[in-house]
Design a binder for these strands. Structure first.
Lengths: 336, 336
DNA sequence: AAATATTATGGGAACGCTCCCAATTTTATG
DNA sequence: CATAAAATTGGGAGCGTTCCCATAATATTT
């Protein structure tokens, strides 16, 4: 039951701990035969490296924090997968925290991770304006941050991995216009997110370009839940505002909206064409399937992980932004 | 930039490290005034406890593994929330791994967690027959396991937290029968899961009891994805098997089936009534909303966390099973 | 054959923390 | 006032690794 240590191995093999350690770490200053012997004994006796001791020695915890706003959508877990793909083989542990779109909770999570002595944090923020001080504090403490998807403004010197929201929003909008839609509603995300603003800008520009822009068609939403999407469309319909298309900030909002329409017998896409941003299975799990802009989420995680490793290895390295290409997936919610 | 240690604090305060440590750990053998002084200095100088050192000293890593089959559904993340609710305040880190319903991958994840020196593992298994040896090996090594939802057979001496699948399957089936359905299909999960069998048993018993049992209505599915549910119903319909109700093993299967029906113009619930097992937002995100048995997932996580703590504290403690109550949620997929 | 370079091993300090065991001071007790 | 008991502090070992610095053994060069 007692754990086998390097010392135990050394005693068993009549070698020094140094030599045993060398064998275990694949050091070159060791005879290949003794290395083989050590490895054999390690296996036989069931030696397991004590990572706490190693961490202490190396001065690194080998823990990386992963901070996300929600996990009801597979969005974060797809990114997480990418992150783990890169970090797990290197012996890094990933610690996940979820804040439910609550900045206060995000704050607590970050503090918790600090307590956990993480070597770095990969984060998708939930409110651009709220936790700036903590971000800065962590950076000052030497804990590198890498943001993905929802990123903070430029005043923070961090690396980011993201997509061009303006560009892809325009792309989706052009598609909806192509479908002959003129009264396209925008369910806009909270203005506290850069992404909301960028996507809204894409919406506006395309509407404007085609001379069909109408501010009454933009409805701003407080939360990002399913219910918020529902409520948004209910509000519009209660106001008897007429529309033939919807471009929603996220898939959750879109699906909420979609359900409200279906409940009220509105045909999709015949009467209303819908498009959104997603990147997850969610878009294909609803009926009709949701057209959406799909960022390469797993890759996003991988890139974020690589950036954080870069920063851990060398803290003076320059921060950089990685822009990823997304895909416009046209499904039955927008075209017959 | 250099981290402040206990030694630094001691030097700064002209105290011994012992005293400083005592203050930090809230030891009673210390004068309240010195404790106050130490805490003040710690705050001022930005002392952060090195958890690796503490772990080394205590002989525990304070890492708990969380092993789940999937994360596209919010199922696991709801359980995870419960787990974290209990463990984070106690300074435990939770390390998440996902195996995508692949036993081999689950195996690798468990080995990885072993490598990470976790103090215990909370797991929802993906195949009852496959990784028994690893489970046993981990237990033998003194790493306690606690299973939730999908649990192994009795030969493994572990604690479990689960619901009575047979009972709730019967419950849901009675409801469907109450709706006047007679030709109820069962989309049965893989037989490698006890849950599949138990729910199937509930289905059979109710069908039998009402004299409407027909083995042709049971369709066994290989995977647990969305597409598998679709395929199952497609197969039935291609065979021109008539049915007026569906009881599916999980919400994902149900939703796949539902979409196939909708694509083919079948009215739900008018022509086909549907019910399933869920416990997540997924059931309310689709249209029509899915009737389902809802286990208290967050509580499941909390209980699992408490069980693992119990085991960590005292490894000789008896294993026990905790049965939780679920709720039968009737929604529009099954009743008008 | 002597000198140097190379290879393989051992000894032991250090990482930061906790906690046992004194040592000292203060307080209570007879 | 002497003695015991309690309260407070300090010294320092040890948790399991790694790695620097010897030392010893072998190989290579003059």
């Amino acid at each position: 039951m007692k754990r086998i240590t390097v010392k135990d191995l050394a005693k068993h093999l009549l070698l020094s701990t140094s030599t045993v350690s060398r064998a275990l770490l694949n050091d070159k200053n060791i005879h290949w035969e003794t290395k083989k012997k050590v490895l054999a004994a390690a296996k036989e006796l069931g030696y397991k490296r004590n990572s706490a001791a190693a961490s202490l020695k190396y001065g690194q915890s080998k823990n990386i924090g992963f901070v996300v706003p929600e996990m009801v959508t597979p969005f974060s877990s797809k990114v997480l997968r990418g992150v783990q793909e890169v970090l797990y083989p290197l012996g890094y542990r990933v610690i996940v925290t979820v804040c439910d779109e609550d900045p206060q909770r995000e704050r607590e999570n970050l503090l918790l991770l600090e307590e956990f002595n993480v070597d770095g944090i990969i984060i998708n923020l939930c409110d651009e304006s709220k936790n700036h001080d903590i971000y800065q504090q962590l950076i000052d403490q030497g804990i590198p941050l890498v943001f993905f998807d929802r990123t903070p403004n430029e005043s923070l010197n961090v690396s980011k991995v993201l997509i061009d929201n303006f560009f892809y929003a325009s792309d989706m909008m052009e598609h909806l216009v192509d479908q002959g839609r003129k009264k396209i509603v925008h369910i806009m995300g909270p203005p506290s997110l850069r992404n909301s603003q960028d996507r809204a800008k894409g919406y506006e520009e395309v509407m404007d370009k085609h001379g069909i822009y109408d501010p009454a068609l933009i409805i701003e939403v407080e939360g990002l839940g399913f219910e918020d999407g529902k409520k948004a469309i209910k509000t519009l319909m209660d106001q008897k505002i007429d529309f033939d298309g919807i471009f929603a900030f996220t898939d959750t909002l879109a699906i909420g909206a979609m359900n409200y329409l279906l409940e009220n017998g509105v045909k999709i896409p015949n009467e209303v064409s819908m498009g959104s941003f997603s990147g997850t299975e969610l878009a294909t799990m609803v009926y009709p399937q949701l057209s959406s802009v799909e960022p390469p989420l797993e890759q996003m995680g991988e890139e974020a992980a690589r950036l954080i490793l870069e920063k851990i290895k060398n803290s003076d390295i320059d921060c950089r932004d990685i822009f990823l290409k997304a895909e416009l997936k046209i499904r039955s919610s927008s075209s017959l």
